[in-house]
Simulated scan of single mutants.
Amino acid sequence: MKKELTRIIFKTIIGRTPSMAAIEHYETYSWPMLVNLLLNSKEFKHEDTGLNRRENVLINSELQFLNEKIGVPIDGAKKDITIDLFFNECFLPYYQKVLSGATIEFIQSKSLPRSGHHFLISLLTKYFDSDLYYCEGHSPKGCCKSNPCLKPFNKDMSNKLMIQKSHDFGLKDEKNNEFIYLIQHRSPIGRIQSNFELALKSSKGLYTDTKESFEKFAINDAEYSIDFYNKWFDPNDGLQKIFIQYEELVFNTEDALNKIIMFITGEAAVPEKLEIAAENKKVKVNTLNSPKETRKASEHRFFSREFAETIEKKISSGIKHKVSIPFEFIG
Rank of each mutant, 00 (worst) to 15 (best):
G170L: 02
M157Q: 15
F91C: 00
L171T: 08
F119P: 10
G142L: 10
Q96Y: 00
F169M: 06
L124P: 08
K97N: 15
K155M: 14
Y134N: 04
N159A: 07
K151F: 11
T103F: 07
S115L: 12
Q96R: 02
H167M: 11
Q164M: 10
I107T: 07
F153K: 05
Y134D: 02
D168P: 03
Y133Q: 03
R114G: 04
Q108W: 08
K145S: 11
I121K: 01
F87E: 09
Q164D: 09
I107F: 03
C144K: 13
Q108F: 10
T125N: 02
K151T: 15
F119H: 12
F87W: 13
V98A: 11
S158T: 14
K126T: 05
F106C: 12
H138R: 02
F106Y: 15
G101F: 12
N147T: 09
L112W: 13
K160P: 01
Y94V: 04
S130M: 12
T103G: 07
K141Y: 00
R114F: 11
L99S: 01
H118D: 15
C149S: 06
C90R: 00
I104L: 02
D156W: 07
E136P: 14
K155Y: 13
T125W: 02
E105Y: 02
G101D: 05
N154M: 09
P113T: 02
D156L: 12
H118G: 13
D168S: 00
Y94R: 02
G170M: 01
